[in-house]
Design a binder for these strands. Structure first.
Length: 860
RNA sequence: GCCCAAGUGGCGGAACGGUAGACGCAGGGGAUUCAAAAUCCCCCGCCGCAAGGCGUGUGGGUUCGAAUCCCACCUUGGGCACCA
């Protein structure tokens, strides 16, 4: 190698990356506008919360989107690839409380920082469409959407419980409740009812469930999680009549999905928030104390379900619907949700473990209604000390106390038969219910989108006039005391009623930040429109062709967005085709890192940044660190690697290549320093190999065809890898092809052709390096704009194949045969191998399976 | 507690129901070098001298053939409606 070539082949990422980012900017190749002559392609990654620093999770997420965007650009698509900021939320207020300053300044300064950290990644983003959800231009349009939804009856007010901190006198998020106490005050948290705004998402439950079927390019697991969340069930709703009914409560309405177990009923349970429970607590101090204790729990379902199951006997009795002489006790139970069903259940201990535990605890009867068709040895009925018998739905059981004797029935048929029987006998109706609850959007916080309504003494709740939008957040607020600054602002709340003109009070609740992220994808199609969307733009760009983000958003964000797409259609802001806004969804895994830990004098763990550790020792002191297995990168564990540091050390292409290479995209990837260095060395090697190929003057020769065959196979494999999110496999294929090119003795022209393909195939992952090498190879224009290489089908198939020969499923030999050899001839050759002859020892094989082109299995 | 996933060499992982371990990292050996770095070449699941045997979280099952399909369990991760 000559001195000159050595110099030429040195890989300087910093130089290359700055140069080509400038070239892309200048050519404006990522600026998206409608065009009739190309198919559109909208690729979107879930937009970031502006915490202040980008992290490797962002790098991974946006690199994956960028690979798709750049690949689609190369295949002749008109690509929309925007970026924005999910900018409202609690952390900005927390920062204002902790360090002073204003949430707005904190947020916009974080956005500026993160944009500056993100740009060096070389993402193919149309930055002209950037917005933050805290821009008044954005949240003003969101207020307009809200008013349209209000007019259509998609929003309403009702009471709902929140976590209340009685010391700070403020509402707490579930995250701010630690072991039942407020995170700042340490006070025991209470549940408190407030009047709040709700979206009628549950009206769409059936549609949101049914439409999942059409989402062919969504992960099955996400669809399943959403289906279970919506939770359609078929059951019976009926009433237990009360013996000695208190005023206004002659019945307790109950919903059950297992009416076939009605004859095993043992008690009736009601929620502590049930109207009957609330009435009883007025004249029963013990009962009131029990209810109060129940309400001291937080509002999360997890907390409720994990808590010890407790009940309180109200002393009331109800009559069994099929035997009025049979009376059941009524308990208040802490595990019954007022939000689901009717807030009341009947307990059947024989067929529900929770009810059985409850019955045992309070000495209530247990009676089986059915038992297994064929009881296994040792089967014990629950009343004889066995566990609750809960058969799978499809399993047939024998009824011992059913509605019509002891017939056999599977669960589902039995439920339908029970509903029919009950309806025929005037006991309740069969109904379909959903677990999905309406979406409470009110937040008693400052840093969110103000809800644009006015409270007037005379007119009640009045929508703000649209011409007054946006209702801007006031800047002159302080965070030196807990609670919502909008509530204590001297003038902001004051307004006049749009209906009667009298002095009135503005709503001080703001919207849940999930509202902001439920329609941003639509706003990107016309980010500067003076209405929420521009129908012509939405008609052209929607739907999002590929949406990419974390699995943690599988339920809430995606379900809310699907609801919003429907609501925006009903209010005329999205076309009918956008009813399901995301055609394809991909959920990527996290970036993890080992955790390095030492102990302080008191034995408490002290965490250390990876950059402060080398060879298992602290660089500063030489102290040995304890290595804790890889976990999600988090500031508290200090197991974070700053993308900015990596880009400075190795370049963006190395960071991009590494986050894509080491794990399947849907799984977690562990960041390792060794892996990053290896990625960099590989890119430098590609730089060297391609530079050499560009200068090669070797004559055409016999090796040319083999190299070009490998090239076409690589084109085929990498293309299908990119299209199916098999980025790690595509990169493994690129390693192999690079090795082939490096070792090939082919002529200069063939090597240059192969090198050009290599550079193009790498270009979605390492766009800067590819751009540089494309120009070294004399490619025309920018590789970003060049047409994607096509694999020649004829070059993909080899003439001969190696077929393994198995004996009883174990590989024992192999034969090399022409690829289309006749089955019987393959069998003949397989039987002639030494291994098979030895195994048969003269006998006939029991069976021979020949899978053409793949394998032969001889059964002896 | 409930819902959803994932478990394969020392490590990350590959593998239309068809040769388990591609590719990469780490490790070992060699070449080059005054030396080192860089680079290049070779080896590398476990046990065994070998023949061979064992191997994809555990235990069953279906199949000519299972990492892959089914059942049960274990462990780890995500979500549980006010974190985003």
């Amino acid at each position: 190698m000559t001195e000159g070539l050595q110099h030429m082949s040195r890989y300087s990422a910093a130089e290359i990356e700055a140069k080509w980012q400038e070239a892309w900017d200048k050519a404006e190749i990522f600026r998206a506008s409608r065009s009739a002559d190309k198919p559109k392609y909208y690729v979107l990654e879930m937009f970031p919360y502006p915490s202040g620093r980008i992290h490797m999770g962002h790098v991974r997420n946006y690199t994956m989107g960028d690979v798709i965007a750049r690949y689609k650009l190369s295949t002749g698509h008109n690509v929309l690839h925007p970026m924005g900021w999910d900018a409202f939320g609690m952390p900005a207020e927390n920062a204002a409380m902790a360090i002073g300053g204003h949430p707005k300044d904190w947020t916009y300064s974080n956005i500026a920082d993160m944009r500056a950290q993100m740009k060096p990644l070389g993402l193919s983003i149309d930055w002209s469409r950037e917005f933050a959800t805290c821009d008044p231009e954005y949240y003003g349009q969101q207020q307009a959407l809200f008013l349209d939804m209000l007019e259509k009856g998609l929003v309403y007010r009702k009471n709902a419980v929140v976590n209340w901190d009685p010391v700070d006198m403020t509402v707490l998020a579930n995250e701010q409740v630690e072991n039942g106490r407020g995170w700042r005050s340490g006070a025991l948290v209470e549940r408190r009812e407030l009047t709040q705004w709700f979206f009628r998402i549950s009206d769409f439950a059936e549609d949101l469930l049914e439409a999942l079927d059409g989402l062919d390019n969504w992960p099955a697991k996400v669809k399943l999680m959403q289906a279970n969340w919506i939770g359609r069930s078929r059951g019976l709703q009926f009433g237990f009549s009360l013996v000695d009914a208190p005023d206004g409560h002659d019945r307790i309405e109950v919903y059950t999905t297992r009416p076939d177990t009605l004859m095993g009923a043992s008690f009736v349970g009601i929620s502590p928030d049930h109207p009957l429970a609330r009435q009883l607590e007025k004249d029963n101090a013990d009962l009131a104390a029990f209810n109060a204790e129940c309400r001291r729990m937080g509002t999360s379902e997890e907390e409720l379900e994990k808590a010890e199951k407790k009940g309180f006997d109200t002393g009331l009795r109800v009559r069994h619907p099929f035997d009025t002489a049979w009376e059941l006790p009524v308990y208040i139970a802490n595990f019954i949700l007022m939000d689901y069903g009717t807030g009341a259940i009947f307990g059947c201990p024989a067929h529900d473990q929770r009810d059985l535990d409850f019955a045992n605890k309070y000495g209530l009867p247990v009676a089986s209604t059915f038992e297994p068709e064929k009881p296994e040895d040792g089967f014990k009925r629950p009343e004889d000390g066995g566990a609750a018998y809960v058969p799978p739905k499809s399993e047939k059981v024998r009824y011992v106390k059913g509605f019509a004797g002891d017939e056999l029935q599977s669960g589902e048929a039995a439920v339908e038969a029970a509903i029919d029987f009950c309806e025929a006998n005037g006991v309740g109706q069969g109904v379909t219910k959903y677990r999905l609850r309406d979406w409470g959007l009110s937040r008693q916080r400052y840093w969110g989108c103000p809800i644009p309504v006015i409270h007037c003494e005379a007119c009640g709740v009045v929508p703000e006039a649209k011409e007054n939008l946006p209702i801007r957040l006031p800047d002159d607020v302080t965070f030196d005391q807990p609670g919502n600054p909008l509530d204590r602002h001297p003038t902001w709340r004051d307004c006049t009623c749009p209906a009667c003109g009298a002095p009135a009070r503005r709503e001080t609740d703001t919207m849940d930040t999930f509202v902001d992220s439920s329609w941003y994808f639509a706003r990107f199609t016309a980010p500067h429109a003076t209405t929420p969307t521009d129908m012509a733009e939405a008609e052209y760009w929607m739907n999002v062709d590929q949406y990419i983000g974390g699995i943690e958003h599988a339920i809430l964000h995606l379900l809310y967005s699907r609801f919003f797409a429907r609501a925006m259609q009903l209010t005329g802001h999205l076309p009918a085709k956008a009813i399901e806004p995301f055609d394809a969804l991909f959920t990527q895994g996290m970036v993890t890192h080992e955790i390095y830990q030492t102990r302080d004098a008191n034995g408490r763990p002290v965490y250390h940044l990876p950059e402060d550790v080398e060879g298992g020792k602290l660089i500063a002191t030489g102290e040995t660190v304890e290595i804790i297995p890889s976990a999600k990168m988090s500031k508290s564990k200090k197991n974070v690697v700053d993308p900015v540091t990596i880009i400075r050390a190795f370049g963006a292409d190395t960071a991009r290549w590494f986050v894509l290479s080491d794990s399947p995209p849907e799984r977690d990837v562990e960041w390792t320093a060794a892996g990053a260095e290896a990625a960099f060395r590989h890119l430098a090697r590609v730089h060297r190999i391609v530079t050499e190929a560009a200068a090669s003057d070797a004559a055409p020769n016999a090796d040319d065809e083999a190299l070009l065959r490998e090239m076409h196979k690589a084109i085929h494999d990498v293309t299908s890898g990119v299209e199916s999110f098999g980025f790690n496999a595509a990169i493994a294929r690129l390693y192999a092809f690079t090795n082939t090119l490096s070792k090939s003795q082919a002529g200069g022209d063939a090597r240059r052709e192969a090198a050009r393909a290599l550079v193009q195939l790498m270009s979605p992952m390492t766009p800067h390096l590819s751009e540089e090498l494309w120009s070294v190879l004399g490619g025309e224009g920018l590789v970003a704009n060049a047409a994607w290489p096509q694999a020649d089908e004829a070059m993909l198939v080899d003439e001969t194949v190696i077929m393994p020969i198995q004996i009883n499923g174990k590989r024992r030999a192999e034969i090399t045969v022409p690829k289309d050899m006749d089955k019987s001839e393959v069998e003949k050759q397989a039987l002639a191998t030494d291994a098979v002859r030895k195994a048969l020892d003269g006998a006939q094989p029991k069976k021979v399976i020949v899978v053409p082109g793949r394998i032969v299995n001889v059964v002896v």
